[in-house]
Design a protein around this nucleic acid. Sequence first.
DNA 1: TCAGACAGACTGGTCCAACCAGTTGACGGG
DNA 2: CCCGTCAACTGGTTGGACCAGTCTGTCTGA
Lengths: 237, 237
Amino acid sequence: MNLRPVPRSSVSDHVFGQLRDAIVSGTYAPGDPLPSERELGAVLTVNRHAVREALRRLQQLGLVRVSQGGATRVLDWRVHAGLDLAMSLTQVDEVLPIDTLVRDVLEMRACIGTDAARLCALRADPATRAAVTGAVTGYVGAAPDLDRMDQANIALWRQIVQGSGNTAYLLAFNSLVGGALAVGRVPPQRRTAELLDTAGHRRLAALIADGDGDGAAGQAHTLLTAPVTAATERTRT
Amino acid sequence: MNLRPVPRSSVSDHVFGQLRDAIVSGTYAPGDPLPSERELGAVLTVNRHAVREALRRLQQLGLVRVSQGGATRVLDWRVHAGLDLAMSLTQVDEVLPIDTLVRDVLEMRACIGTDAARLCALRADPATRAAVTGAVTGYVGAAPDLDRMDQANIALWRQIVQGSGNTAYLLAFNSLVGGALAVGRVPPQRRTAELLDTAGHRRLAALIADGDGDGAAGQAHTLLTAPVTAATERTRT
DNA sequence: TCAGACAGACTGGTCCAACCAGTTGACGGG
DNA sequence: CCCGTCAACTGGTTGGACCAGTCTGTCTGA
């Protein structure tokens, strides 16, 4: 087995995690006031500063609204939280089934990836086109090691998204990669079909190199939609 | 003129903003160590705790990596930052021209919105379909007040994205709405063309109500692509 | 000469204690 | 009944102290 670095979590990390899960899972409803910082510190046997640091992170995620003098209140994450929250949503199976979340992320990746491939074919400079072709070569060369292919696949799509010249796509891609897609929640055999279509990826690189926007979009759609339908099937069971 | 609530910013907000801008604008290159917390506190004449809270938020955004014992190092935001960063990118015109960012956001909104409309037509329950129709009615009724139309337009698309049943789309939508699109960076006259197509929006609602996924996608694409091409023109000038 | 152990000077992590600055709500006078 | 006042909250900020890792230069032994 391959060893991974030990995840060392600080006190404020624990506080953050607990509060985040409590909020997303609905333990605290939107509009509800959170216990005061001093009270949270007392209950969790933690210093107030640790609580404050955790609250800052929750605020940054869009989960709470803090106001001096008044209580810190819970926001409706369906309204105020950004895509980065997806990176943290791995523990709340009751509220949001993990299979559904995976399907959603794949669906979004397909949507973004298709348009990014189109734009990459239209807007990318020669160096980037070459980089895409190179990334595909690296990807194909990684076969049949699924883990390495996975890694190379992400690198490939990062190139494409970068080549699209759309910063919003790039940031969203980061959110998705850092999110449920990459947490290892999806067992290897589930991605086999997607990852093994090396011919399809080669074709995609060629279309991008040729500057054929519509062709690249179509090919990307084909490549990215297959796993979505598979995931959709999975949610029904 | 319409009055707006006074934005009151805390000390740690200022620290956060300064560091964020310094990082995104490249003052600190990826891999560079940030000054120590004590040093930052001394330079900014601020307590160390305030610095720490700001650093937590930067960490949450994916802009820095902090490690006990070692220095806090700057990450490459093009690799590690999520879409939420777009909500903060309004001041770094040199690195990322604001017109380009607006175009990117509109492009992404068009991409997501098109697929969300398709899924909404396919998957939404009757209540949600009715809500979409109602939102369009409210939107049309808001004419010709551009500000109210803007608000109603956002509410309408929120309904559609919600109806798509895709949580990733919903969170991304929040990021985009909270981001450059809503900061008032785009003068009213620039959105006129998009906002005034009431007939097109009515048609979209009808297609969604009928469950015509492809039709809804096409109509949504028409509605959302127009502002993108306009914004693209703008970036050339 | 050089590899490796070691010590000290950093780094961030946590805690305590105090005070400032807003908000809230109950209480009492008009 | 209304409205101002004030006390008891809330979060905001500061200072200082100490723990716990990391890094680096130095010094020792081979």
